[in-house]
Design a protein around this nucleic acid. Structure first.
Length: 895
RNA sequence: GCCGACGUGGCGGAAUGGUAGACGCAUCGGACUUAAAAUCCGUUGGGAGGGAAACUUCCCGUGCAGGUUCGACUCCUGCCGUCGGCACCA
């Protein structure tokens, strides 16, 4: 039995750290190179550089106080691209800033009595130091924080310009209201329908709020997705579905007069399935529908139901998952094609006022929600679309609605038509029919996308720069009075908005009439802050929100990188904002992000005690018995269960602090690990073994470089006219790796770049072993090949291991910085082999290989294949029907 | 519930419709060492067989069930499982 202790990497490193003096000491080297980069200002970017521009940006962090592994991954990816693009001869913009407004600062203020501003700026300072220790090639001179008046004053100006351009609107919307704390709650603050702090049951409340009219651009935002070629397909799809364009019919259903309240003689419904009109069995209204409200005045049961629906909260998921319920209003709607056909009118909890008209006709046979509802209230279920392979007479709906293709049935004049034709026929007929001088129906395009509510009843956000005057109404704050600065003397003793209860801040005189007036106390959604920071980076000190020359030079962002969790909202809002800024003359582009990349999460094992509580990694002791790993509590020896691998989070106690990794192993090890193994768009599992492996490679590359340096020709040696076969092999390995790594970085497949660097290191190690056998005396051409390979190796590793690469570059005798070096030039001729080996299949199964000249004709290949002994044996006398030769790939003999 | 993605050895993963398992981790064996660590060299999908050995032959295998194709991890249909988003977390 071998028991091994994994628990203390620090101790292990200290132990062997004293053994050999030639170890690479990251702790000493990394700050030294960082200082040199900074002193020489090599990552400072100028707006007037003649080289081609390249703008690479990672989503800026919320200053929580400490970076987490997700940041390490995000910024490593961006940094590799930035350094590679710089080596490729581009003027690279790679800035960093802080998404510094938001709820956590206010929560901290309430919990610890720290002012949000102090808390935020202290966090920024701490995180900045951590980011600096990662060795990122950032231009810190462009740093910005969204909570700084020098940033948000321009955001206020943009708001005012948007207002002028008709892109801002005030209307009501529902919020989660905590009746005890007297405050608006975010969805994440509502737990099981109750306020997180007070525990009170949450109510829906209508509030008048500020909105950006993103829906003005629904169609434009949708269409332009097709032009976003360098975006992940899944993100484009998600955005398309989020905008949710649907073509449908707006139809007026007359109400039977009995019981209908005054001013209500019809219900307007929106449907995307007019073809199923003869399958209708009820009409349903949203609980917020005006007719529902009117009926509730005299129907206590209905009023109670509407009240109940309000307690579901505002989150879509909860509304969808709630059991389908409704109340029969007693009203009857008349079928548009049959005056004698009456449909019951319900108010139902699954109908949304925000979508369409807030009213639908229910067709249970072909919509699952309608089916669930119909079963519950025993409403008729008539299939009207029948799949091609079913008999219309016997086709029945069981537990699942049928939403597939088919022919119309049970639908009078529509019978036999396809779905599209039936839709068309219904629309045509109802459009022609009129009631009260208006057509009974009209075609309409609907979008799922709703306007963007930006009002927040909170302190730590950008103040909305308007004034409410009794006489003049809503008056924009004059530009000369910008910024509207947040007052600093606020208290967080009570929940609710400190701005609203501030004694003086909101009292102002109306800019128009001079009368006493009130300042708006809502602040902006933090998504507004992050919707244009990437443009501000192009001219962070400009007196206006943007500087046209800088914006035109740098935008759009060539490569944007961030978590997939932002795939919809942040990116869509930014796309809208870009259009709105163009409409108001601030910029000249439509799309902000030419290339988009969404990285996966960082996940880690979890450890639990028998009682189910989580234990943090530092407290766990591991033992390996054969291939089995066991975990126990280091302090008591209590057995622990090694649980599933989950996203790093405080609650699961499975976080790894980047600071520990950086100070123990160094930034290069952390970066290398982040890039190894997992493709960047998938989750990466943080493992202690993996980090050890990355650390070993850092040391190995350092040793290898020093050994190569012993054999390598001087840095300035003349290139020989010919190379021996051995020398050529070394060069082939180097240029092969160069070709792969270049392509893989461009395609953001860093795990493959890493693999190819390993391969080159392995090949050079093997070559070194051969060279050593010669007793250290090698020919000039070999020495030159070693020099060439070593220089390539270090330069292609440099974007990923920037500190180590500098150290190695120096060890190879260079006086320059590798960060300033151009990318190596590929010799494509070295990648072409004269003889190639093709796999040979018989009926798709590999049976042999054939070696043949690269330029052999198909006939020659076929002849060579059929002559192979192994193929003859497999054929066993059978005559091939076909021989498929895929040039330079494979041969398949079909019998 | 709706939308989107993912599923390959013991593990992370590789593979323009063309040799499944590159590369790494872990494992096992060897060298070095008094010993260990580190390092270096080698080994490893599962099963069955042949050979003294270097080696070699066959079968199975990419979540499950089908389909298209000369050929499928890859494309199509249906299912199962895991993860992300759902408009006030950022």
């Amino acid at each position: 039995m071998t028991a091994r202790d994994f628990s203390c990497p620090v101790a292990r490193i200290r132990r062997h750290g004293t053994m050999k003096s030639e170890r690479y000491n990251a702790r000493e080297a990394e700050p030294r190179w960082q200082k040199i980069w900074e002193e020489r200002g090599i990552f400072r970017t100028r707006n007037d550089d003649p080289r081609p521009k390249y703008y690479v940006l990672e989503m800026f962090p919320y200053p929580s106080g400490r970076i987490h592994m997700g940041h390490v991954r995000n910024y490593t990816i961006g940094d590799v691209i930035a350094r590679y693009m710089r080596a490729m001869g581009n003027n690279v913009l790679h800035p960093m800033g802080w998404d510094a407004f938001g709820m956590p600062a206010e929560n901290a203020a309430m919990a610890n009595k720290v002012h949000p501003k102090k808390w935020t700026y202290e966090n920024i300072a701490a995180m900045k130091a951590q980011l600096k220790s990662m060795g990122l090639s950032l231009d810190w001179s462009r740093e910005l924080a969204t909570c700084d008046p020098s940033y948000y004053r321009h955001q206020q100006k943009l708001f005012l310009d948007f207002m002028q351009a008709g892109l801002v609107e005030r209307k009501t919307s529902r919020v989660n209201w905590d009746p005890v704390d007297q405050t608006v709650l975010a969805n994440e603050q509502v737990i099981d329908g109750r306020g997180w702090r007070s525990g009170a049951e949450v109510e829906a409340r209508e509030l008048t709020q500020w909105f950006f009219r993103i829906t003005k651009y629904s169609d434009e935002l949708l269409k332009a997705i097709d032009g976003l070629e360098r975006w992940p397909e899944k993100v484009r799809l998600m955005q398309k579905n989020w905008i949710g364009r649907s073509e449908g019919l707006l139809a007026r259903f007359a109400l039977a007069p009995k019981g209908a309240p005054k001013n209500f003689d019809e219900i307007e419904i929106f449907t995307t399935r007019p073809d199923t009109l003869f399958g209708a069995s009820f009409v349903a209204l949203a609980p917020d529908h005006p007719l529902a409200a009117a009926l509730a005045l005299r129907d206590p049961k209905l009023a109670a139901f509407i009240e109940e629906c309000r307690r579901t909260g505002t989150a879509q998921e909860l509304i969808d998952k709630a059991e389908k319920k409704g109340v029969d209003t007693g009203l009857r709607a008349i079928h548009p094609f049959d005056p004698k056909w009456e449909l019951p009118v319900y108010v139902a909890n699954f109908i949304l006022m925000e979508y369409g008209t807030g009213a639908i006709f229910g067709c249970p046979a072909h919509d699952q929600r309608d089916l669930d509802f119909a079963r519950k209230y025993k409403l008729p279920i008539t299939p009207v679309v029948v799949p091609a392979d079913a008999d219309p007479k016997t086709f029945k709906i069981a537990n699942e609605a049928y939403d597939g293709d088919g022919r119309l049935a049970n639908s009078r004049f529509l019978d036999g038509l396809g779905i599209a034709a039936a839709k068309e026929e219904v629309a045509k007929r109802l459009e022609k029919e009129t009631r009260g001088n208006r057509p009974v129906a009209k075609r309409q395009i609907h979008y799922r996308l709703r306007d963007w509510g930006i009002s927040r009843q909170r302190y730590w956000g950008c103040p909305i720069p308007v004034i409410h005057c009794e006489d003049c109404g809503i008056v924009p704050v004059p530009e000369k009075d910008l910024p509207v600065v947040l007052p600093e003397d606020v208290d967080f003793d009570r929940p609710g908005n400190p701005l609203d209860r501030h004694p003086t801040w909101k009292n102002v005189s109306c800019p128009r009439c001079g009368k006493r007036a009130l300042r708006e106390t809502d602040t902006m959604d933090t998504f507004v802050d992050s919707s244009w920071y990437f443009i501000r980076f192009t001219a962070p000190d400009a007196k206006t929100p943007t500087e046209p020359k800088a914006e035109r030079y740098w935008m759009p962002v060539d490569q944007y990188i961030g978590g997939v969790e932002h795939a919809i909202l942040h990116l869509l809002y930014s796309r809208f904002f870009t259009r709105a800024m163009k409409a108001t003359g601030h910029i000249d582009i439509d799309e902000p992000f030419k290339g988009m990349f969404t990285q996966g999460m960082v996940v880690h094992e979890t450890y639990r005690k028998a009682d189910g509580t989580y234990v943090e990694l530092a407290a766990v002791k591991f033992e390996a018995e054969g291939s089995e790993r066991r975990a126990s509590l280091a302090s008591s020896g209590e057995k622990l269960e090694i649980g599933p691998i989950e996203k790093m989070s405080k609650s699961k106690r499975n976080t790894v602090d980047p600071d520990d990794i950086l100070s123990t192993f160094g930034a290069d090890t952390a970066r290398w690990f982040m890039l190894s193994d997992s493709p960047p768009d998938r989750d990466v599992i943080w493992t202690e073994d993996g980090v050890q492996g990355a650390y070993r490679f850092v040391q190995r590359l350092w040793r290898l470089t020093n050994e190569l340096a012993e054999f390598a020709a001087p840095a300035n040696a003349a290139r020989p006219s010919t190379f021996s076969a051995d020398a050529e092999d070394i060069r082939k390995a180097a240029h092969g790796a160069l070709a792969h790594v270049s392509e893989d970085i461009q395609r953001l497949r860093f795990n493959r770049s890493v693999a190819h660097i390993y391969e080159l290191a392995n090949a050079l190690t093997a070559s070194l072993n051969g060279l050593r056998a010669t007793g250290g005396k090698i020919s000039t051409d070999l020495a030159c090949a070693v020099r060439e390979a070593a220089d390539i190796l270090i330069r292609i590793a440099a974007p990923m291991l920037p500190h180590l690469a500098e150290q190695c570059w120096e060890a190879l005798g260079h006086k320059t910085l590798v960060a300033d070096e151009p990318w190596p030039v590929l010799e494509p001729g070295l990648l072409v082999e004269e003889m190639i080996t093709l796999p040979v299949q018989v009926n798709g199964k590999k049976r042999a290989d054939v070696s043949i000249a690269r330029n052999a004709s198909d006939q020659e290949v076929e002849a060579a294949v059929l002559a192979l002994e192994a193929i003859q044996r497999t054929l066993d006398g059978r005559v091939p029907k076909r021989v498929i030769v895929v040039a330079q790939r494979i041969v398949n003999v079909v019998v």
